[in-house]
Design a binder for these strands. Structure first.
Lengths: 187, 187
DNA sequence: TACTTTGGTATCGAATCGATACTAAATACA
DNA sequence: TGTATTTAGTATCGATTCGATACCAAAGTA
């Protein structure tokens, strides 16, 4: 297998996803980056719902992201809430309207249909191959992993529920499937 | 395999590729979209090196693309040439400087390294899985395929070289590996 | 108490991008 | 043949993205 071939397909697929996202966003007056931010906010846990986390996730500067979030706020797609303990921190939560919009997102539907149409998927190793590629690229570029707690080295199984070894806080069964900005794979 | 999982990984991978591309482009004062256009122009065949083709490839509007191409021209990364027969058409060719820049592109290097680090790649079906996913998505969204002639239903093997059944023109061994805007898979 | 760090916002200039209007060449058609 | 339509591309405008910089407030540190 030539790396170049995989790369070409991957880049084409990324372009296609972005096209669909752009087309979908147009109907609501949203830019691709705004949809990405809102999508992230529907998937992240309570440690990771801040402007700073979105900034790291998107790989942009905080000023840029601040602007986009302001727009999403003005459109009533998310609401801001100050942190109780640290008053510098802002928590972002998608509104019902925001969640509904992301659920309808066409890229999701398009890809889902595409995956269903591919016959040879079960046991094809596509998911595993993609995952290890992503993992390797994140290591290679020293990027945060932004994955769910259930694959994190800090996550501990308790008799009742789970515990994050970093924050020493209990995690529910739902929470361990959400994206965390502090996520680290085991070495 | 859940489609949602694959989608999340794919979107994360796309974000990562875009981040690296942005970071790389910054050093040369280039935007991600400009790098993508220039990359395409190093890979496409002689039917597909026009502003219109780039527009279709990127999924943007022709006005937008026209601007970006103008900038790449001003930076000396490509040159424009009027078509001999149809005087409306402009052909775009990357300059030596443009080609060199794309060869250095970090996304490529980063991904290549990532793929090499993944051990379980040979026979993992990653490439095949990605290809069928891309193919299915293109069909689902009625997008052009933008693939190389050697996988095209119009391409015919001759005793000496190849023939494009659409244009009825001969194709060289090199040409059938370049991206064509008229490409169609067999039904 | 002063200094530094951190999280976030505001503002500016360059660029993207869609929409629209426009030119020029090729094509259709009557 | 002559007029209308289509096609390829450019130009311009306004909204938005984005990086850079400056700034503010809260938290941490010495």
């Amino acid at each position: 297998m030539r790396a170049q071939d995989v790369q070409d397909i991957l880049e084409r697929l990324c372009n296609l996803l972005r096209m669909e996202m752009r087309q979908f966003g147009l109907k609501f007056g949203l830019q691709p980056v705004q949809i990405e931010a809102l999508t992230y906010l529907t998937q992240c846990n309570r440690y990771s719902d801040t402007p700073q986390a979105v900034t790291e996730y998107l790989g942009l500067t905080k000023g840029t992201v601040s602007q986009s979030l302001k727009l999403l706020d003005q459109k009533g797609l998310l609401r801001k809430r100050q942190d109780k303990k640290d008053k510098r921190i802002v928590h972002l939560a998608p509104t019902a309207k925001g969640r509904k919009l992301i659920e309808q997102s066409i890229p999701a539907k398009g890809l889902e249909a595409a995956l269903k149409m591919s016959h040879s998927l079960k046991g094809s190793g596509l998911e595993e191959g993609l995952r290890s590629t992503l993992h390797a690229m994140q290591r290679h570029n020293n990027r945060k992993t932004f994955a769910a707690c259930h694959t994190c080295r800090f996550n501990q199984k308790l008799s009742e529920g789970f515990l994050c070894g970093l924050t020493n806080e209990p995690l529910s069964k739902q929470e361990i499937h959400m994206i965390c900005r502090e996520h680290e794979y085991a070495v």
